[in-house]
């Protein structure tokens, strides 16, 4: 289990990285923490010709509050965001959800934006971005653009990024006043890929429910109080999950109904 050969590039600036991406296109792959990519490369599922390591770019290491959102630079690890003192205050959902991302040892290296770019259907962070209606700030040599969560992840491990584009920051909207959030995950073991991950954010008008691990991309639905069982049921069916060796589609749908109900109730009870 050894990776195929690749060129290794460690740009000194973001500009250098973008120039190299423009030049290499599909042959290049960005590596920030590499906690998913390196494993896939070891198995030769992924065989990029050039690996562009952005972990050392100082300009991507920041966590800021700007434009009503927490802006997380592409070099920020999951552990660093989790340890950010203001996290629970400004976006409690992230504080609830980040401990479920991988393990202590992979969070130390894995980045928030890398998880978004990888877009594993069972990952928690793409679910958070979708649920919160966040976006990603994307750069290329051609310029920049902002891609909303709903447009960003287009399929299993597939995003709207062009070959020369790179996420430079993810933006998670700040928790609004008089809202509440909840998150729960069912996995075979602690730290495993989610069979079903369920998050919810709500206010006095209604609740937004998000589900990962079932469909190819996070599923999100807006529901109004009181949330009817029928609405949860229809949402569960709409995700179109499939059987795999860890769980049946039937079980996943049931978890969407049951855990969905649990997190919705938790949000409801936590509302002021």
């Amino acid at each position: 289990m050894k990776p195929a050969a690749f060129d290794y590039a460690q740009p000194d600036t973001l500009g250098e990285a973008l120039a190299l991406m423009a030049k290499k296109g599909e042959a290049a792959r960005i590596c920030a923490g590499g906690q998913s990519l390196a494993a896939m490369m070891n198995m030769r599922l992924a065989t990029p010709e050039v690996l562009i390591d952005i972990a050392g770019l100082a300009e991507l290491q920041t966590i800021d509050i700007a434009n009503g959102a927490i802006e997380v630079g592409a070099g920020v690890t999951q552990a660093e965001l989790l340890a950010w003192p203001k996290l629970a205050e400004f976006q409690p959902l992230l504080a609830q959800l980040l401990p479920w991302v991988g393990h202590y040892q992979t969070r130390a290296r894995g980045t928030v934006c890398g998880s978004l770019a990888h877009s594993d259907p069972s990952s928690e962070l793409p679910l958070a971005l979708a649920l919160l209606g966040g976006d990603v700030f994307v750069r290329s040599q051609r310029g920049h653009r902002i891609i909303n969560a709903e447009d960003f992840q287009v399929g299993m491990m597939a995003t709207a990024l062009e070959a020369d584009e790179m996420i430079v920051a993810a933006r998670f909207p700040l928790a609004r006043p008089a809202t509440a959030s909840a998150f729960e995950e069912v996995a075979q073991r602690h730290g495993d890929f989610a069979i079903v991950a369920v998050g919810a954010v709500g206010n006095k008008d209604g609740v937004r429910l998000g589900v990962g691990g079932v469909a190819d991309t996070p599923g999100v639905v807006d529901l109004t109080w009181p949330v009817a069982d029928a609405a949860l049921n229809d949402f569960a069916w709409s995700l179109g999950g499939a059987d795999d060796q860890h769980a049946t589609a039937r079980y996943r749908r049931e978890l969407v109904r049951r855990i969905g109900r649990r997190v919705i109730d938790e949000v409801h009870n936590a509302l002021p």
């Binding site: 460690q10 590499g34 390196a38 690996l51 390591d53 040892q105 130390a108 290296r109």
Partner: peptide, 13 residues
């Protein structure tokens, strides 16, 4: 100062 997997890193990193 971090605990990391050495199998998911390349020596050049």
């Amino acid at each position: 100062g971090k605990a990391v997997r050495s199998c998911l890193l390349y020596a050049v990193q």
